[in-house]
Design a protein around this nucleic acid. Sequence first.
DNA 1: TCCATTTATTTGTCCGTACAAATATAGGAC
DNA 2: GTCCTATATTTGTACGGACAAATAAATGGA
Lengths: 247, 247
Amino acid sequence: MEMKSIGGAAPLYRQVSGALKEEILRGVYPVGSLLPTEIQLRERFGVSRHTVREALRLLREGGLVASRRGSGTVVTPPSTEASDVHRVMSVSDLLAFAAGTHFDIEAIDTVAIDTALARATGLARGEEWLEVRGRRLDTDGAPLCRTVYYINRAFAAVGRMLPRHNGPIFPLIEDMFGQSIEQVHQQITATLVGPELAAGLDVAVGSAALEVRRTYVTAEDETAQVTINIHPAERFQHAMTMRRIDA
Amino acid sequence: MEMKSIGGAAPLYRQVSGALKEEILRGVYPVGSLLPTEIQLRERFGVSRHTVREALRLLREGGLVASRRGSGTVVTPPSTEASDVHRVMSVSDLLAFAAGTHFDIEAIDTVAIDTALARATGLARGEEWLEVRGRRLDTDGAPLCRTVYYINRAFAAVGRMLPRHNGPIFPLIEDMFGQSIEQVHQQITATLVGPELAAGLDVAVGSAALEVRRTYVTAEDETAQVTINIHPAERFQHAMTMRRIDA
DNA sequence: TCCATTTATTTGTCCGTACAAATATAGGAC
DNA sequence: GTCCTATATTTGTACGGACAAATAAATGGA
């Protein structure tokens, strides 16, 4: 069967890739089996080896197959790592922890969760948590966002490491306490900037800001940490790309 | 400067990619700037255009740059990693399409994307898209959010089905046109409510709102649909739970 | 000065060739 | 039957060329 690039049709390499993907998904090539070799595919589709290799590269990118020189191209099992916490961490996290930004700690206290804090954090009233307040600053000292961490007292020892730590906190909790963070609940809302925030973030009172709250939950369904970030809307968007992965 | 493949060294294309990546990360090419053209890189590194393109492909895979024919290769802001569309589709989507809510269409037009719309939607200026404006109403008629859909003209026929359709649009595109939505890019920002929005949503002018923009991209890298939802902050939070799945 | 058209630029797609490198297979000796 | 070596197979890397397609820049006329 020969394929040609028709006006308006997809490029040849996408057509070849699509045909192979459809065959994989309907079981012509079960997991573990080999696809035809590049030379066989070239003959079957009547295209160049370059085009075949581009098609196979798309299948590899989609996690459907894996190629090795001398061995061939094998169909791989569906990947289930798509929801790994590290993978779906938002741009705000990446930006926040980019090299050169610095978390400027303003206060570290043990606080009792009152009614207002319970509403703001989702934590139960009456409990005591370690509260770390500060601003994340860019390399030039400009404020990026205001951040408050609430850390479960069971893991409060990580507080000591914060002054010289620039990355996320939850891996510290995992390392020091052998805990595994299994879920991160994220909530985003819009808020208006009041006088205190305005001063600390160099924006006008009354302007809009994004408030991002994340609750980190262990394998034992225990909340280890809550973070609240407030970003001026004029300087920040929360972006995310979701890709479809078919099992 | 010329590079050669030395025994034990990385392939040329990886060396070129690494050199460019290092320059990007240390600020030689800031976000938004253009990399040298393929021809310039070929001359600089003394390698073939194939090798240069392989190097740039690695940079694209890493999310560092984006290339377009006729334009060149631009350095991109850091971007998030993937998750399954169906897995992590947000609660807001589920709520929006919950049984009982109704999308009240106010206008359906074909619009040309001007400069302001290009900025708001991310679509290319001059193109024509089907624009569907309206509000999503709760069971008791209370407005939940203001929604605008931009639908690629190639799929505009789905517009006819909207008046009696309450779910998401992209499955309609998939069903009617045999297309597969592979990626959804989501961006969330905060905005202030102006007079027009305030009237339609029963909130005060000057209050805060969340603006959620989603871009639905097919397997052929074509944008099928863009939706923009504006939610009053006092009544809406964007929530999401990410789970760790170990293979 | 603005706009439409033309031209130039740049990347995308497709073809081909050649050799390297990793792996699988075949064959012979013990 | 096992082990070692040689050969074959298959993908990876690198080169070159050509034309298409999208975008940007230049040009000319109103």
